[in-house]
Amino acid sequence: MQVPLEVTYRDVPKTDAIEALVQGKVARLERVCDHISSCHIAIEKAHDRPSNGSPYRVRIDLTVPPGHELAAVENPGEGTQYEPLEVVIRDTFAAAERQLKELNERQHDQVKAHPTQSVTGIITQLFPEEGYGFLKTLEGQEIYFHRNSVLQNDYDRLAIGTGVHFFVEEGEEGPQASTVKIVDKPGAHVPESSEAEEIEPPLGWQQ
């Protein structure tokens, strides 16, 4: 499991069965979207003996780069009194999965409407723990990229100042890079304090 996961229980016992259910559902979300950057789940018992509705409430908050925040909440009302916690959890994850699929479809439609463009650039920022970074095109535009977009699993070989070749895709939050390939200084290791300007730029680079 790659997603940074945080689960909070409030007045609900943490059992192996609930943990296994949550882990399995998070893995399913990962199959829908393989670059979720954070997942927080709150499982609580809001009422001991509600006059109507279920006593349980489940909320899932997801973050998807470059800046998408999704939230799914289930708090069953009338007609579903004392619905088991497992059912509420499944329903909440189903709602979160629908939102992820809708996000994927919107991004896909926008990419189809904006044909990809081949671009050369240089790495300017890296966030290894979060698994993403930014690069600058020859025209000076900074563009987001995710580690899954780097070919041959070469994300860990990138450094500030590494020259790359990539394609630009139009995402919901603006342009983002895909199919990122190292074309200059492969495997170079640059001290964290170094700036891109201190490194010899790739062929054709201009500030």
Results as ranks from 00 to 15, higher is better:
residue 86 E to F: 14
residue 87 V to C: 12
residue 87 V to L: 13
residue 88 V to T: 09
residue 90 R to A: 13
residue 91 D to Y: 08
residue 94 A to P: 10
residue 97 E to W: 02
residue 102 E to S: 11
residue 106 R to V: 00
residue 108 H to W: 14
residue 108 H to E: 13
residue 110 Q to P: 00
residue 113 A to M: 12
residue 114 H to I: 00
residue 115 P to V: 02
residue 116 T to I: 07
residue 119 V to R: 09
residue 120 T to I: 09
residue 120 T to C: 08
residue 121 G to T: 02
residue 126 L to Y: 06
residue 127 F to I: 14
residue 127 F to C: 07
residue 127 F to M: 14
residue 129 E to G: 09
residue 130 E to K: 09
residue 130 E to D: 10
residue 135 L to H: 05
residue 142 E to W: 01
residue 144 Y to S: 05
residue 145 F to L: 07
residue 147 R to I: 09
residue 154 D to Y: 09
residue 154 D to P: 08
residue 154 D to R: 15
residue 154 D to F: 08
residue 155 Y to E: 01
residue 157 R to F: 07
residue 157 R to D: 11
residue 158 L to V: 02
residue 159 A to W: 02
residue 159 A to C: 11
residue 160 I to M: 00
residue 162 T to H: 00
residue 163 G to R: 03
residue 163 G to N: 05
residue 164 V to I: 11
residue 165 H to D: 08
residue 166 F to E: 00
residue 171 G to M: 04
residue 171 G to E: 01
residue 171 G to D: 03
residue 175 P to S: 07
residue 176 Q to F: 00
residue 177 A to Q: 13
residue 177 A to P: 14
residue 177 A to W: 10
residue 178 S to Y: 09
residue 180 V to H: 01
residue 180 V to G: 01
residue 181 K to N: 14
residue 182 I to F: 10
residue 186 P to R: 04
residue 187 G to F: 05
residue 189 H to E: 15
residue 189 H to V: 14
residue 190 V to Q: 06
residue 191 P to F: 09
residue 192 E to D: 14
residue 194 S to K: 05
residue 197 E to N: 07
residue 199 I to S: 01
residue 200 E to L: 09
